[in-house]
Amino acid sequence: MENFILILLCIAIGYGIRRLHIFSKDAATTLNQFAIYISLPAMILLQIPKLSFSMDALIPIIIAWLVMTITAILILYLCKFFSFSKEITGSLLLVAILTNSSFMGIPIINAYIGESALPYVLIYDQLGTFIALAIYGTFIASYYSSKSEISFKIIVYKVLTFPPFLSLIVALFLMGVEFNETITKVLSSLASTIVPIALVAVGLQLQFKLPRSEIKPFSVALTVKLIIAPIIAFGICKLFSWDNQASIVSILEAGMAPMITAGAIASMAGLAPRLSSAIVGYGILISFPTTYIIFKVLSF
């Protein structure tokens, strides 16, 4: 229970700070940068070496990419069926596909399953969601918006120099290695900052404005992201008879809220900014009951 109180409290604090204008306008960016450049790499170095080479470690990667591919095709079809504009289509291809696998996935899955699940969360995030954000996300923003000037060379550079990704590469070489007590304590202290910092940043970025004309794409995006995506992940697990912690984590990750960064990219690219922000904001709040239902169903 205390984990959920912490999650909701941190989001509420961030939202309250934003409404009261206590922090500067770029506070959310600064907090996210701290989480990405310090907290997340520390958690990766702490948790990934605990894994062993097995099929279990591949399950989150397989599910992440299959779910994103299938839902992207579904979103394209629905956008054509409902005759959504190019900007709305681009927005939905970002926020309805890319999941909030770290900033929301880490605290929520830790609350449901415990610390033993975190290595699978990090694999899903780094080898699934993050690479998709860097490559697929940049392509969608470039293709659907004339404002974007991002090249493939820049994408590759960002991937190869991204601190969490570099930490993952190092951590993979350290699998099976036990750190001494001092290193473990330092990494644990740094890693523990990711939850409050990231969730306060989430609260700082929440927006809830939504006109009636955007209700249909809004509903399509959240239905696909929060309901259909985890059902697809569940179906994949059943198809391959995967029934373990890695599969449960992957299904929960598939049903997490839309990625905040995906919403930011959509907004910066001019892809229905107000709609993108609303999908992310409401998606975060709605994901609390939906992920709880998913976990309860998987627990039977």
Results as ranks from 00 to 15, higher is better:
1 M>C: 15
3 N>L: 03
7 I>K: 10
8 L>V: 05
11 I>F: 14
14 G>Y: 10
16 G>L: 13
17 I>D: 10
17 I>T: 08
19 R>W: 08
20 L>V: 03
24 S>K: 01
25 K>I: 10
25 K>V: 10
26 D>F: 14
28 A>V: 05
31 L>M: 03
34 F>G: 06
37 Y>W: 09
42 A>G: 00
42 A>N: 07
43 M>N: 03
50 K>T: 12
52 S>E: 09
53 F>N: 14
62 I>Y: 15
67 V>S: 14
71 T>V: 13
73 I>A: 15
74 L>P: 15
74 L>V: 07
80 K>L: 14
81 F>M: 04
82 F>R: 06
84 F>K: 01
84 F>D: 00
85 S>P: 05
87 E>M: 03
87 E>S: 11
88 I>G: 04
89 T>W: 02
90 G>R: 10
91 S>L: 03
92 L>T: 11
93 L>P: 07
96 A>S: 13
97 I>T: 02
97 I>W: 00
99 T>I: 06
99 T>F: 15
101 S>M: 08
103 F>N: 09
104 M>F: 01
104 M>Y: 08
105 G>F: 00
106 I>D: 00
106 I>Y: 02
108 I>F: 07
109 I>R: 09
111 A>V: 12
111 A>M: 10
112 Y>S: 07
114 G>L: 13
114 G>A: 05
118 L>R: 14
120 Y>V: 13
122 L>R: 13
122 L>W: 08
125 D>S: 04
127 L>T: 09
127 L>S: 00
129 T>D: 02
129 T>F: 14
132 A>G: 11
133 L>Y: 01
136 Y>S: 05
138 T>V: 04
138 T>Y: 12
139 F>D: 11
139 F>H: 13
142 S>E: 15
143 Y>I: 15
145 S>L: 11
145 S>Y: 07
148 S>I: 06
148 S>G: 07
152 F>I: 14
153 K>C: 14
160 L>F: 06
160 L>W: 12
161 T>I: 07
162 F>Y: 01
162 F>R: 03
164 P>V: 06
165 F>M: 12
167 S>E: 12
168 L>A: 09
171 A>Q: 04
171 A>T: 05
171 A>P: 06
173 F>R: 05
174 L>N: 11
184 T>L: 11
185 K>Y: 01
186 V>Q: 01
187 L>D: 15
194 I>G: 08
195 V>G: 04
197 I>P: 09
198 A>Q: 07
198 A>F: 14
201 A>I: 02
203 G>W: 08
204 L>V: 13
206 L>H: 02
213 S>A: 14
214 E>D: 11
214 E>A: 10
215 I>L: 12
216 K>Q: 11
217 P>S: 11
218 F>H: 03
219 S>D: 09
220 V>M: 05
220 V>P: 00
221 A>N: 01
221 A>S: 10
226 L>P: 01
227 I>C: 00
227 I>T: 01
229 A>G: 00
230 P>N: 01
232 I>H: 05
242 W>Q: 04
242 W>M: 12
244 N>L: 13
249 V>A: 14
250 S>F: 07
252 L>D: 08
256 M>C: 15
258 P>T: 01
260 I>F: 05
260 I>N: 03
263 G>V: 13
265 I>A: 03
266 A>D: 03
272 A>L: 01
274 R>D: 06
275 L>I: 06
275 L>K: 03
277 S>W: 09
278 A>I: 09
279 I>G: 04
286 I>V: 11
296 K>W: 06
300 F>W: 14
